[in-house]
């Protein structure tokens, strides 16, 4: 089975190198070029001396963590539901997870404008219950961005977990029950450790997606609450500062990369990996 693989792989390999690796190297080189034509750290020095840029970087990473935390909180009940469900319910849950994931990001973001808008159901209900004096728009703040991104990224957390749980043997639970463990104890000592590698894999995807979702961040966050993707686009599309945009893009890549690598390493931790 080891013969003859290369000719089939070669075209895509060439495309990956020429179309993907080379542009990234060019981007890196570009981030070290200064307007005068020389090479140096000027773009990075400027970036780290700019309090606004640092604030935006900090907000973006914080957003990633907040969305990871909230998808985990909302996702856990679904994970448990999936675990206890029979084959037909499981297949329904998978369908209901894939459906929103495949629906366009722009469409989902638009639906949230309707839901959180002044004439939307949330604001009308809050006004009727007297929590707010009159219906008003609940958009354009960080909480809204976190809520919307949580809904949008939830499937990214759930699918890896469902994949892991579908492959596991339920007799472990029967064994724990026979030994007299209650449902909460089984949850903490059997189900969660089994799901952990999937959850960590999901965290990586959610974090990567939440920190870079340009459309949702700009539509739901508005102009006052900007994150790195909008900052990069502004440098390129409005200010034509390509080298400094390249530097910011690299900082985004490096910081999110380090955090994602840490999550991925945690997933391969021997105590977790042995269960998967």
């Amino acid at each position: 089975m080891t013969r003859g693989g290369i000719p089939f792989v070669a075209p895509m390999l060439a495309l990956s190198i020429a179309g993907f690796l080379v542009p990234l190297v060019v981007l890196a080189a570009f981030s070290f070029s200064d307007p005068a034509g020389g090479f140096g750290m000027a773009n990075y020095v400027k970036l780290f001396a700019d309090p606004l840029a640092l604030q935006v970087l900090f907000d973006t990473l914080a957003l990633g963590f907040k969305v990871v935390a909230s998808t985990t909180l909302i996702g856990l009940p679904i994970i448990l539901l999936f675990w206890h469900a029979g084959p037909r319910e499981r297949s329904l849950i998978v369908f209901l997870t894939l459906l929103p994931m495949l629906v366009s990001n722009v469409v989902r973001t638009f639906a949230w404008i309707v839901i959180l808008g002044r004439q939307g159901p949330v604001s009308q209900t809050l006004a009727q219950l007297g929590f707010i004096p009159a219906p008003r728009s609940l958009l354009f703040n960080e909480t809204a961005v976190v809520v919307v991104l949580s809904q949008i990224e939830l499937p990214l957390l759930l699918l890896p977990v469902m994949a892991v749980l579908s492959r596991t043997d339920r007799s472990l639970v029967s064994a724990a029950e026979t030994l007299g463990a209650g449902p909460w104890r089984i949850l903490a000592t059997v189900i969660l450790p089994l799901a952990a590698p999937g959850i960590l894999a999901g965290w990586v995807l959610v974090f990567a997606s939440a920190t870079t979702s340009y459309v949702t961040q700009s539509v739901i966050g508005g102009a006052r609450h900007i994150y790195l993707p909008q900052y990069i686009y502004r440098e390129v599309g409005v200010l034509f500062q390509w080298p400094s945009a390249a530097a910011i893009a690299f900082v985004l890549l490096a910081t999110t990369g380090i955090i994602m690598a840490a999550m991925a390493m945690l997933a391969r931790h021997p105590r977790l990996a042995s269960h998967g």
């Binding site: 792989v9 993907f20 870079t212 993707p229 390129v236 390249a246 893009a249 890549l253």
Partner: peptide, 24 residues
């Protein structure tokens, strides 16, 4: 070979868009 082929899935597409624009 495998990680190289799958790498574009992990990279923020926005960063790739910028890299491709500059390189092209």
């Amino acid at each position: 070979v495998e990680p190289l082929m799958l790498a574009p899935l992990v990279l923020p597409t926005l960063v790739y868009g910028l890299a491709a624009l500059i390189a092209f």
